[in-house]
Amino acid sequence: MFRTNGKKSTTKVLVVEDEGDMCLLLELLLDTEGMEVDHVRSLSDAREFLEKEQPSLIVLDNRLPDGLGIDFIAYLKAQYPAIKILMISGVDIAAKDAALETGADTFLSKPFTQLQLKTSVSSLLN
């Protein structure tokens, strides 16, 4: 948990991922770090969520039922420039360069380790 002036500060994270097992794993790992984790399964659900709340971090999968996460990055950067983006993908290794060029703050290839996830999240939020 992150602390500010001695007070607990919960970091909000939005996971945009359509695979149930991966969602559960990400939620468990981030929750153990004291983060408040919300989860949606599509880009349209992510847009709707962001109209109501702005997390500090979005963990964004690339292949989603209604489009590619890479294509969503430009929208996120234009509308919510303060939100950090951690892109994850297991299919398109070539997506790494495109994601980073488009504005993702960091990229993890699936499968990744618990340490890789925690290190990436920590470096983005600190």
Results as ranks from 00 to 15, higher is better:
residue 21 D to C: 01
residue 123 S to I: 01
residue 16 V to H: 08
residue 4 T to I: 15
residue 106 T to E: 12
residue 16 V to I: 15
residue 37 V to W: 06
residue 35 M to Q: 11
residue 113 T to C: 07
residue 63 R to E: 14
residue 66 D to Q: 04
residue 39 H to T: 15
residue 115 L to A: 14
residue 30 L to V: 02
residue 67 G to T: 07
residue 81 P to G: 05
residue 121 V to W: 02
residue 53 E to Y: 01
residue 112 F to N: 02
residue 94 A to C: 05
residue 78 A to G: 10
residue 39 H to S: 14
residue 21 D to Y: 04
residue 40 V to Y: 03
residue 67 G to E: 07
residue 6 G to K: 11
residue 55 P to N: 09
residue 109 S to K: 13
residue 82 A to C: 00
residue 117 L to D: 08
residue 5 N to E: 09
residue 49 F to D: 07
residue 70 I to S: 13
residue 108 L to G: 08
residue 82 A to V: 03
residue 44 S to C: 04
residue 79 Q to Y: 01
residue 42 S to Q: 04
residue 69 G to R: 12
residue 59 V to G: 14
residue 78 A to C: 04
residue 36 E to Y: 14
residue 36 E to A: 15
residue 65 P to S: 06
residue 57 L to S: 14
residue 16 V to N: 10
residue 60 L to C: 15
residue 58 I to W: 03
residue 65 P to H: 09
residue 64 L to P: 00
residue 20 G to L: 06
residue 38 D to Q: 13
residue 72 F to D: 09
residue 86 L to S: 03
residue 38 D to C: 11
residue 52 K to H: 08
residue 101 E to D: 13
residue 62 N to G: 10
residue 126 N to P: 00
residue 73 I to W: 10
residue 124 L to E: 01
residue 7 K to S: 11
residue 66 D to T: 04
residue 51 E to A: 11
residue 112 F to L: 02
residue 44 S to M: 05
residue 61 D to M: 12
residue 41 R to D: 07
residue 100 L to I: 10
residue 91 V to I: 06
residue 125 L to A: 01
residue 124 L to I: 03
residue 91 V to S: 11
